Deep mutational scan, measured.
Amino acid sequence: MQRVNMIMAESPGLITICLLGYLLSAECTVFLDHENANKILNRPKRYNSGKLEEFVQGNLERECMEEKCSFEEAREVFENTERTTEFWKQYVDGDQCESNPCLNGGSCKDDINSYECWCPFGFEGKNCELDVTCNIKNGRCEQFCKNSADNKVVCSCTEGYRLAENQKSCEPAVPFPCGRVSVSQTSKLTRAETVFPDVDYVNSTEAETILDNITQSTQSFNDFTRVVGGEDAKPGQFPWQVVLNGKVDAFCGGSIVNEKWIVTAAHCVETGVKITVVAGEHNIEETEHTEQKRNVIRIIPHHNYNAAINKYNHDIALLELDEPLVLNSYVTPICIADKEYTNIFLKFGSGYVSGWGRVFHKGRSALVLQYLRVPLVDRATCLRSTKFTIYNNMFCAGFHEGGRDSCQGDSGGPHVTEVEGTSFLTGIISWGEECAMKGKYGIYTKVSRYVNWIKEKTKLT
Rank of each mutant, 00 (worst) to 15 (best):
M6R: 13
M8F: 14
A9Q: 13
A9M: 06
A9C: 13
E10P: 14
S11T: 13
S11H: 13
L14K: 03
I15T: 04
I15M: 08
T16V: 09
C18D: 01
Y22M: 11
L23S: 01
L24M: 10
S25D: 05
S25G: 09
A26P: 00
V30T: 15
V30G: 15
V30M: 14
F31E: 15
L32E: 14
L32H: 15
H34F: 07
H34S: 07
N36A: 11
N36V: 08
A37F: 04
K39Q: 09
R43D: 10
R43N: 11
K45M: 07
L52C: 07
L52H: 15
L52T: 15
E53T: 10
F55M: 15
Q57F: 09
N59M: 05
R62M: 11
R62S: 13
M65Y: 15
M65Q: 12
E66H: 06
E67K: 05
E67F: 04
K68T: 12
C69Q: 04
C69I: 03
S70I: 05
E72P: 14
E73Q: 08
E76M: 13
F78I: 13
T81E: 14
T81G: 13
E82V: 09
T84C: 04
T84R: 08
E86Y: 06
E86T: 14
E86L: 15
K89H: 10
G94C: 04
D95K: 15
S99G: 12
N100E: 08
C102V: 01
C102R: 00
L103C: 10
N104V: 02
G105E: 07
S107P: 03
C108F: 01
C108V: 02
I112K: 15
Y115S: 04
E116W: 12
C117G: 02
C119R: 02
P120W: 03
F123Q: 06
K126V: 06
N127Q: 12
E129R: 03
L130K: 12
L130V: 12
T133C: 04
N135A: 12
N135D: 12
N135K: 14
I136R: 14
I136N: 13
K137S: 14
R140A: 15
R140Y: 06
C141A: 00
Q143F: 03
F144Y: 08
F144I: 04
F144P: 00
A149M: 09
D150T: 13
K152E: 12
C155M: 00
C155G: 00
S156H: 08
G160Q: 04
A164T: 09
A164L: 06
E165S: 10
Q167A: 07
Q167R: 05
P172R: 06
A173E: 09
V174G: 06
V174W: 05
P175R: 11
F176S: 05
F176A: 04
F176M: 05
R180D: 01
S182C: 03
V183H: 08
S184I: 13
Q185N: 14
Q185L: 08
Q185E: 14
T186V: 09
A192S: 09
A192E: 11
T194F: 12
V195P: 11
V195C: 06
P197G: 10
D198K: 09
V199H: 10
Y201V: 11
Y201F: 11
A207L: 06
E208M: 09
T209V: 11
D212E: 11
N213L: 06
N213E: 09
T215M: 04
F221V: 07
N222C: 05
T225A: 09
T225D: 12
R226I: 11
V228R: 11
G230K: 09
E231F: 06
D232M: 09
Q237P: 06
F238S: 03
W240L: 00
W240F: 03
Q241C: 05
V243L: 07
V243C: 04
N245S: 06
K247H: 09
K247I: 10
F251H: 13
C252G: 01
G253M: 12
G254E: 01
I256H: 01
V257P: 00
N258F: 02
K260W: 06
T264A: 06
T264N: 00
C268E: 01
G272E: 02
V273L: 04
K274V: 04
T276G: 05
V277P: 01
V278T: 12
A279D: 01
N283Q: 09
E285S: 13
E285A: 12
E286Y: 08
E286P: 06
K293R: 12
R294D: 00
R294T: 01
V296A: 04
I297S: 02
R298N: 12
I299M: 08
I299A: 08
I299D: 02
I300C: 03
H302S: 03
H303R: 08
H303P: 10
Y305N: 03
A307T: 10
A308D: 11
I309S: 07
N310A: 11
N310S: 12
N310W: 04
Y312I: 09
I316K: 01
L319C: 07
L321E: 01
L321Q: 00
D322S: 04
E323I: 06
N328L: 00
Y330K: 05
T332G: 04
T332I: 08
P333V: 00
C335L: 00
C335R: 01
I336V: 13
A337P: 03
D338W: 03
E340G: 15
N343E: 13
I344C: 05
L346E: 04
Y352F: 15
V353G: 02
S354T: 14
S354F: 10
W356F: 07
F360G: 11
R364Y: 07
R364I: 10
A366E: 09
L367F: 13
Q370H: 14
Y371K: 08
Y371E: 06
L372P: 03
V374A: 11
P375N: 14
L376Q: 06
R379M: 14
A380M: 08
T381L: 09
T381D: 14
S385P: 03
T386Y: 13
T389M: 08
I390C: 05
N393E: 08
C396M: 02
A397Q: 02
G398F: 03
H400W: 10
H400C: 07
G403S: 12
G403P: 13
S411R: 10
G413E: 02
G413V: 08
G413A: 14
P414C: 10
P414Y: 07
P414A: 09
T417K: 01
T417Q: 04
V419P: 01
V419A: 05
G421H: 09
G421I: 03
G421K: 11
S423P: 02
F424G: 01
L425T: 01
G427P: 00
I429N: 13
W431R: 08
W431N: 08
G432Y: 10
G432L: 03
E434W: 10
G439Y: 06
Y441S: 03
G442R: 09
G442H: 11
Y444S: 01
T445N: 04
K446D: 08
K446H: 05
R449L: 10
Y450P: 02
Y450C: 02
Y450V: 00
I454A: 01
E456Y: 11
T458S: 08
T458L: 03
L460C: 09
